[in-house]
Design a protein around this nucleic acid. Structure first.
Lengths: 102, 102
DNA sequence: AATATATATCGAATTATTTGGATATACAAG
DNA sequence: CTTGTATATCCAAATAATTCGATATATATT
């Protein structure tokens, strides 16, 4: 995350309130997604996030894709579900890099 | 900078490489703008920044305006010149807020 | 195999951002 | 008061981002 290109991708990913909101929700999955049928250890599945954003399934999927391309979240596919988790390592590295370069 | 709207404005302002570059240059004015005719204590005047970005005067002016609207820089007008400085207070507050909310 | 569910991708419309040329404004100097 | 310089604003064109419906893909169930 010291690379200029990674920082660019991450800052762009964070430049949308819905994507920042998603990251904030993923900070406390048990608080925001307690109604998930699957264990939260896996992460939060895409459909649960769709429901919360109020946006269409395809739009939310695009936002999640943007977050993943920026490495701000990790995904894990189990059966037909895709679980999302914050990538704390990258998030921290990004915040550190921003503090440095900014 | 605890307000959600301010964070939105700031993240959008940082979502462009040229604007991040300008903020980085302003961190070390004596290093990057040693050829400025006016004292650097005032800040760095817009024209010096134009020259460095390689973009047109009007485009650079728009970028500087975006940074100012986000309160990431302060300006001071002296004669016909406008001097820009980093707003360290807001930058720090933003980084802190980002660390909190993100 | 047929059906149902979860997610991703495609295509097109809408909106936002970036860009530069031209012009306006403000100030300084002659 | 005219001319020159610095910066901002206006305008239009180009590019990028957002959004959604429709469809594709993958998996699960019957």
């Amino acid at each position: 995350m010291t690379d200029s290109n990674e920082i660019d991708t991450a800052t762009k990913a964070l430049a949308h309130p819905v994507r920042r909101q998603i990251l904030a929700w993923l900070k406390e999955p048990e608080r925001w997604f307690s109604d998930q049928a699957h264990p939260l250890d896996y992460g939060v599945c895409a459909g649960m996030i769709d429901k919360k954003t109020g946006l269409s399934q395809s739009t939310t999927s695009a936002h999640l894709s943007t977050l993943q391309k920026a490495n701000l979240v990790t995904t894990r596919k189990v059966g037909q579900w895709v679980y999302f988790k914050r990538n704390e390592e990258t998030i921290k590295a990004f915040l550190d890099a921003l503090e440095q370069t900014l």
